[in-house]
Design a protein around this nucleic acid. Sequence first.
DNA 1: TAGTCTAGAGAACGCACGTTCTCAAGCGCG
DNA 2: CGCGCTTGAGAACGTGCGTTCTCTAGACTA
Lengths: 195, 195
Amino acid sequence: METEDAAECSRVLAVADGLFYAHGIQAVGMDRIRDAAGVSLKRLYRCFPSKAALVEAYLRTRDEWARNELSAYLTGIESPRERILGVFDWLHAWAQGADFHGCAFLNAYGELASGSEGVVRAVRDHKSALRRYLRHLAGTTAARDPETLAAQLALLLDGALSGAHVSGTAAPALDARAVAATLLDASGAGRPAPA
Amino acid sequence: METEDAAECSRVLAVADGLFYAHGIQAVGMDRIRDAAGVSLKRLYRCFPSKAALVEAYLRTRDEWARNELSAYLTGIESPRERILGVFDWLHAWAQGADFHGCAFLNAYGELASGSEGVVRAVRDHKSALRRYLRHLAGTTAARDPETLAAQLALLLDGALSGAHVSGTAAPALDARAVAATLLDASGAGRPAPA
DNA sequence: TAGTCTAGAGAACGCACGTTCTCAAGCGCG
DNA sequence: CGCGCTTGAGAACGTGCGTTCTCTAGACTA
């Protein structure tokens, strides 16, 4: 029953994740989550003591999801340059899906930044984790200044996410890819990584 | 009284603009706007028949404000290249101000996209107007593909706005400026504009 | 079988907020 | 002076929603 509870809570979280991401957090009430998950409110509140707790769990889930998806997508790509460009290919593929609704973190930030300290923390944590990952990727190239390169790539990612979301097309991901290629060319990243 | 009414409505709009932008649209109720503007609810509703109408007026105001500010900032800069880089200098200056809270349109989109057709239209109108302006600036350079350059600059702008908002620093604007410089160098924009 | 404990379904509560209504005060006009 | 119209301030209403409470039905135990 311990494990049953955990499984149920996971299912609730998965349902909430889908609804929050698709329709926004404020637009989805606890009743709707209850109906979609097929549990009673009592059980729902046993899993997550408040909507705020559920929202934070949702953001943690999204963070893990994005990082797992991205690193899985990049697995097997040998060239550092191609791995970085692959970030934008991944985004392009994601943005083409019918279930794409932009960056869950930027959305949550816009909805709840004023009034929820936990959300602000979760968003910043996610962005800095992503930044570290890009820094890591930049470090595998011969770029003269990997830190700056990572900041610029993060910028492109945010811009492409916003642009794709608002415009409803995946084109900004390709624009961002082209910009990244230009940056890599200009940064000296074309040469093999230093020892 | 015609003009008095108009002046009062303008004042209401200015107050609403400040509150909406600083705290978010959902977080600011009509009562708060009434108190801050010092008018009765009746007069408020005479100026704007609903909160939705007020929000749309707010977005139109912001659109005009941003475009006027930007073009004023760029006035007098002769070099096409410097004018484009100036866009990011302007953003950097804006983002350093205490009253900076990111892009009003991206914020509104995140808050209200699901459930307000008018907001979606206003956001897209603003973004495409900005895009046309960047396209115009790109056209004054010798860039081989001004359309693509404009798309890339728009991307940088969105990314820098998001990044500056979430991080609470103006640094992303400078990152974006550096990327823009690299793009201009790579696009052939350094040469004088073609006849 | 009788008693007790649990869980589920949904009603109920409290609050926030957009919008409308009430009521009284002020002011022009016959 | 007296009548009606407008205005302002705030109460009131309806709704939505997060959270809690109630009531009933079933299961387990002695």
